[in-house]
Amino acid sequence: MANARGAITVKPDPFHLIMFDAGVIRDLVEEIAGSLGVPTATNIQLTVDEEIPMPIVATMADVVDGGYDLWCTGACFEARNKSRAFSEAHARAEITGMILRANDRVSGGFENAPADSELLPGERIAWDCYTMGRVASLGHKVHIQKRLYDFRLQHGFTDAADAAFDRLWNTSATAFEAISEVCVETGAASRPKPKLRADLIRAGKRK
């Protein structure tokens, strides 16, 4: 569905497997994009993979030909305690996070960052930490302990990792180079590379 603004598309439309309304999601994207200063000329495409349920949450935010290419699993917007139901609170927070990251790629110090499919888990979670800290500062109810645990899984259960988390969470501006430095500092950069591609879920390959 494309609106008069001419640049916001939500797929699929309609949803068949879950109780989501593409129009509601598009309105959210438009509202949030406006509030985060995304130029009206920017194309935004959000694909929600409705086949993937809780607890498989994953998002990707890339910039392709100047347009925002956002992707997430249906689980990201799904109510945690009611299967297949839509949670506006989760959707708002996740969409805000995806758009912030796309903004970062355009002019926020992450212009040279690899595509999401190429990011290492430590890099991705550190960037997410910086992102969700900003999402929280925008007034969303972000569970900080949840984000700290996510961070620790990739950067270690150490004081050094917790200090890095605090730094990223509380900063209002950083760059991909700082993210890379954090990965070196906590040891995440020296972990073995994942055996599977980060976008395996998105690829949606059939068995």
Partner: peptide, 11 residues
């Protein structure tokens, strides 16, 4: 730990 949804799955 190298899967994107690992933290949510463990939670």
């Amino acid at each position: 730990v190298d899967r994107p949804s690992v933290s949510e799955r463990s939670r």
